[in-house]
Write a protein that binds this DNA or RNA. Sequence first.
DNA 1: CTGTTAGCGCCTTCAT
DNA 2: ATGAAGGCGCTAACAG
Lengths: 338, 338
Amino acid sequence: MANIYDVGRLAGVSRSTVSRVLNNKGEVDAKTAERVWTAVKSLNYHPNASARALVRHKTDMIGVLLGDITDPYYQKLIQGLESVTRPLNVGVVYYNIYQDFANRKTGILAVINSGKVDGLMIVGSRLDERTIVLELLDCGMPIALVERDLSGIKVSSVLSDNQLGSRLAVEYLKGLGHTRIGCITGDLHWQTAIERFAGFNDAMARHRLPLPESHIVTGNGAHESGYLGMKRFLALTPQPTAVFACNDMMALGAVQAANESGYSVPEDISVLGYDDLVFAPLFYPQLTTVRQPFFQMGAIAALALIDQIATGKQAAILKKVLPVELVERKSCRALGNV
Amino acid sequence: MANIYDVGRLAGVSRSTVSRVLNNKGEVDAKTAERVWTAVKSLNYHPNASARALVRHKTDMIGVLLGDITDPYYQKLIQGLESVTRPLNVGVVYYNIYQDFANRKTGILAVINSGKVDGLMIVGSRLDERTIVLELLDCGMPIALVERDLSGIKVSSVLSDNQLGSRLAVEYLKGLGHTRIGCITGDLHWQTAIERFAGFNDAMARHRLPLPESHIVTGNGAHESGYLGMKRFLALTPQPTAVFACNDMMALGAVQAANESGYSVPEDISVLGYDDLVFAPLFYPQLTTVRQPFFQMGAIAALALIDQIATGKQAAILKKVLPVELVERKSCRALGNV
DNA sequence: CTGTTAGCGCCTTCAT
DNA sequence: ATGAAGGCGCTAACAG
């Protein structure tokens, strides 16, 4: 593996000059530069990343903290964030929390303090993990939060408008003629879930739609809890005519429960999801759902983080709330001709 | 950020001693070691990764080349590989090829040559990319292949028995009484797809099941091609009574097409998938499918790679073919009482 | 058992 | 416009 010294020797210049042309810094004679480049090419030279990181105090890597990278929930978010990191040549390392933030804290701190990454993106986190996030923030490392807000703290965060999303859902369903609407919430330890549920309650009240307690099931975001929620609704008399599942995973569970019980969606009961995961349109019936702009969120957060890294630690403060939209597909139907 | 020098000063020892206790190398007086550890803790010291990598010529990072990390196809594979890397404290960086291996080659080479990773795991790759893989291999970097075999080349590779999988599928369907079985193949530029298709043909012939050309649709692994394939089968007279989709994604597409055309699965037509993706049981109907041992494959490949890294470049040669199994769920039914 | 010394490969003033 | 020299933080002989 050739190093910068070899290149210099082959090009007949000093290492400093090689470094200059490689990094486009300082004035270098065009002829010399060319000689250097040909040497670089012929030696198939690539600067050693560790050496460079050591002297620059910068690794061109960012870390991403998330629950589990294999969760479909993160698909578009990752695509969005990589869409900005790739062209900038910054690498990304994913750290799976597996919903065990507290126990993984030391590992994360080690990563941060060992200088493996220049900044950290934290996607989601439970409400009770506030202090952990604050500790991370304390390290002086640039940080960007996604789907999580830290009231009173100066930190970049990008969110989507969950309250709006739930309102759109309710209004869409109401527009279709539904009045008995059930809701399966997410895990209420999460900011996102709380906001969606609040938005739902709010919209139901505003539109004077009845909301008996039996029409609310506290889920946890998992497929099974959607399944169970739907079973409960199906046992009611009268049944809700529509179910708002606070994420797509639960919506799938709900659809499965309905099917198994001999009901079909949307003929017998409508199901509305939230997130618009990649597979939402691949399902039968294709899921009508509230689309969260994951791709943008990932991209914006990455941009904010990289900007902080470039300009100095935790300099740029931004709170960005993105709008959401309802994507109409096939899992809800208009009432009226029942 | 404290460095090794600070620790030494606080503990009243030289940096070498600190290094020794940190790395458990050489004999160190227990008392001294303790003083060092307390200094380490009180300073919240973590060795700088870049400096360490520079002198050790080892980053404790491995790279993973795959199509797109957000593809559900990789879920369990990643879980498996991380299950071995995490306890060993080796980091992993994912490089998405996005089916554009050739154009990303230079980027990959840069990563390799800049010493960002100690080894490379390559998951899949098209047949015509053989030379690219060979080039990568030429870099002298430890490499492990997954779902790809390089005939005549010394390289670790872990595969699953695709031929067996297809045979199991055919035999299962035959056991259920099906004789008219359609097949939607994957993209035949991929080793995996070729093997599955070969296995299917083979098993059909061995069991003397009729296989008119119309019962074979060349797909590409995507949802839509499963959809299209099913539409073609549905247009046939007589229709196949069962469809073997060579991956779950296409199986979903096939189910959707059937549903849309007013047929239901498995009552009117059976659908059998391949892969057993995480969402296979979350679907309605729950997908009967051939399970590939992704988790194990990822783990074994990671182990092989790490072993190569530890013992020396490209030392261990291994070719491991893992068995597959058929997971019976709800998308196929027995014929007979039609 | 512990300290001294010499780099790992690169970037960056400071001279020239 | 270019070279010389020092140092980023750490590990690994080599002395003692």
